[in-house]
């Protein structure tokens, strides 16, 4: 009889412990959930200590910074959040052409795109675009140059200047 009481007590204690565990997720459990929530924000990191989540890293704008916090706030066991995320707008794409004259000429930009598509397959040639004129330098076989010239002419430049090209 006494023994039975004891085992019941132990069982109750064990159950209580399990419930307690379930009610209070560990830091590592929180970390897993938080990381899941932040999976769409590769530049944001989270650190969990005693249920306090510290967010760090970069967000492209204020809205993204706030939404990271909101997402994490919904995770069970999170007591508070320290939001150290910095708002860093994505870097502007590196300018393809540095000279302003060429940048201002949209026709040159279109030509450059066409030229870039074509010249990838012609490693021996150096092709430049300036004021509607395509200049080709370097060294190519006659057959390759013919293919390149046909493709470049198809872009309708003002002129294709190959005076600096060596044809083997």
């Amino acid at each position: 009889m006494r023994n039975k009481h004891l085992s019941t007590a132990i069982l109750c204690l064990a159950l209580a412990a399990m419930v307690a565990c379930k009610g209070k997720p560990s830091d590592s459990q929180i970390q897993t959930k938080v990381t899941e929530q932040l999976s769409t924000m590769p530049e944001v990191t989270a650190d969990v200590k005693d249920g306090v989540v510290t967010l760090a890293g970069n967000a492209p704008d204020e809205a993204a910074r706030a939404s990271a916090e909101t997402a994490v706030a919904g995770v069970e066991g999170v007591k508070s959040i320290t939001n150290n995320i910095m708002v860093t707008p994505p870097a502007a794409p590196a300018p393809v052409a540095t000279d302003t004259a060429a940048m201002a000429n949209p026709a040159d930009e279109a030509l450059r795109t066409g030229v870039a598509d074509i010249t990838k397959d012609f490693p021996g040639a150096n092709v430049k675009v300036e004021a509607g004129v395509i200049t080709v330098t370097g060294e190519l076989s006659a057959a390759k140059w013919k293919t390149l010239k046909q493709a470049l002419d198809g872009l309708h430049p003002k002129r294709v200047d190959a005076s600096g090209l060596k044809v083997k």
Binding site: R159, A162, L165
Partner: peptide, 19 residues
């Protein structure tokens, strides 16, 4: 393109754009 290449060997004069 053959005739063009005959008149301007290797298309180096740069005085024609042919599409």
């Amino acid at each position: 393109w053959s005739i063009y290449g005959k008149i301007d060997p290797n298309y180096l004069s740069g005085d024609v754009v042919m599409d």
